[in-house]
Design a protein around this nucleic acid. Structure first.
Lengths: 338, 338
DNA sequence: CTGAAAGCGCTTACAG
DNA sequence: CTGAAAGCGCTTACAG
């Protein structure tokens, strides 16, 4: 067997360039300017010849800088999460960091394991879209000086910036739109709030604002993804308020998907019964006459999260973002046109 | 300022346990069994007290095992990619590996950078869903003994397993279904093949099999995402074959999304003009009367890719998967019912 | 069953 | 402007 070609090391580059390891290290680090042009040229040439690339593991070990950010995502198959992840990733690149994305599938046990792991890889910062309540572990990061930013969901007893939608504003905008369009009775459909502060807030705000606007209102939690329980609740709601114009407000994209299926099962006419969802999805424009949504600025949110982290890691390269709470955009379509 | 609490090290655990670093290392490595029960207990206790966790950077540096797999994804916002990534991730966890996912947004330059990076982090294996033709860099990995598996797309001159759909079978199944349903003229809509071997193969097979089946056929490449050019081509196609039953076959999910929009713009009745797509999407059942698709077994594909890698990294823990080429599942809906 | 020591590939005071 | 040397936290022969 031929010997496996290995990656070349700093020592080999140094030898070939007739320089010291120190100089090569400086060349690939922040101190390239300290080297004379001729030294730089020799090193560049040697490194090019050998195809040298610094070993990040070694760098991380010695310098304490892994140049890695970690991200915990509760559900990577949710389009909203994908969009945010995309934004986070872009921003990382921009700052010269790499991102390790860990999907927890909303499972606290996977979340625990992934956090251990992120710690073991010495990530310099963490974007957390929590599944459970990983207080303990997050405190470990914080006490070691690793900055954390919470995405979309708060975590009890963890003091960290929270980047996300202005949930009160979102629900208010939705309800005001529905009221403006003449709907008088609104059913709110949401996944079970569980640990999600966002789901809790939206639900609470729904009850609050719907009351204030004088709307008849009620809510239904999605038990399983086929929404059988909600099917019943929806048809009961419509039956009970036949004399009023009824609408459904969905708490997120998953709810919108399920409810759209229910509308078809019950043969409801979109608009005649209003339908509106928080989160914009690819297909909302396609279900004729279109489903009205509240779009979240996912790219901006992802970038802001990273900016928070960078501000703490390297205050000189990034200022603290001005706002952590974002306004949604109303995308009006036929489903809220009576 | 209080001193920042650091992570504890192997040395601290060793001291507290009254043991050597070697023993602590063995405890956290593969050789725990070599330690006497009492030593194990002392180490376990000490580690627990200090909240010790081995530093993976250091492990990777010395042992050469980063326990990291890398994955290059051409477009993370494509639902098909997300589904595959999910499968890959699950499989990694199962083998005790972590996954660094890099999205290239179909940009060869980003692809280049990400590959450098993955190398710098010493990934032990690589799942590559290529954007461009990163031959050179992939060869570097291969020559260093890092196994590679290609996902969905081949890369010229790179010899590696290719995990993906059986594209010939898929196109044949689609065309046979359309022919069975009585469609006589079929337009194939695809994104521009560019570097994608899959897109090339599907297109070529379309022309081949459509010809064999005696179908009138033609194809249209999506230039921009709004599909203006294709809009024209579609309506021309329909006009030219008014006396025949016409259908459109979409080469992937993106094409299906665009074409569905075009159907609405042209006010075409689904089924009257047939529509079928490769890739199953959330909303295909919702566009009434439903869009017929060919679903890919994404989880199995992701798992298989990882299994290939693991077989090369650690032949004793994983056998070579039996098949690398997968059959799609036909999901019949109203859009192919005349 | 256990440990002392060398060394993985880097960075960073320190010295000149 | 440049380099010799110590050391980051581990693993792994080697020895007993």
């Amino acid at each position: 067997m031929p010997p496996t070609p290995r990656r070349s090391t700093i020592l080999e580059v140094a030898r070939l360039a007739g320089a010291s390891k120190t100089s090569v290290s400086r060349y690939f680090g922040e101190e390239r300017d300290r080297l004379s042009p001729s030294l730089q040229a020799r090193i560049a040439h040697a490194a090019g010849t050998l195809g040298y690339q610094p070993n990040q593991m070694a760098r991380g070990l010695k310098g304490g800088r892994s140049k890695l950010l970690g991200m915990l995502v509760a559900d990577i198959r949710n389009p909203f999460s994908v969009a945010i992840t995309h934004g986070v990733e872009q921003a990382c690149r921009q700052y010269g960091y790499s991102l390790v994305v860990c999907n927890t599938d909303n499972d606290p046990e996977q979340e625990r394991q992934h956090l251990d792991l992120l710690g073991a890889y010495q990530v310099e910062g963490l974007v957390v879209n929590a599944s459970g309540s990983p207080e303990r572990q997050l405190h470990t990061f914080i006490s070691q000086g690793t900055p954390i930013v919470l995405l979309d969901r708060e975590v009890d007893h963890v003091e960290a910036e929270v980047v996300g939608l202005d949930n009160h504003l979102a629900v208010d905008m939705a309800l005001e739109h529905l009221a403006d369009q003449g709907y008088q009775a609104v059913l709110y459909v949401s996944e079970a709030p569980q640990q999600s502060s966002t789901r809790q807030k939206r639900l609470a705000r729904f009850n609050h604002t719907a009351g204030q606007l004088g709307l008849i209102h009620s809510s239904s939690l999605l038990a399983n993804s086929d929404g059988t329980a909600t099917l019943q609740e929806l048809s009961d709601f419509l039956a009970a308020h036949q004399q009023h114009a009824c609408a459904v407000l969905c708490g997120n994209g998953t709810a919108t998907l399920t409810v759209t299926r229910l509308f078809q099962q019950l043969d409801l006419l979109l608009g005649k019964v209003g339908l509106m969802g928080i989160d914009e999805l690819d297909w909302c424009a396609l279900i004729s006459p279109g489903i009205t949504t509240l779009a979240q600025p996912t790219d901006a949110m992802g970038k802001t999260a990273v900016q928070c982290l960078m501000h703490r890691i390297a205050p000189h390269v990034s200022s603290m973002p001005a706002a952590l709470s974002f306004s949604p955009t109303l995308i009006e379509r036929g489903s809220t046109q009576r």
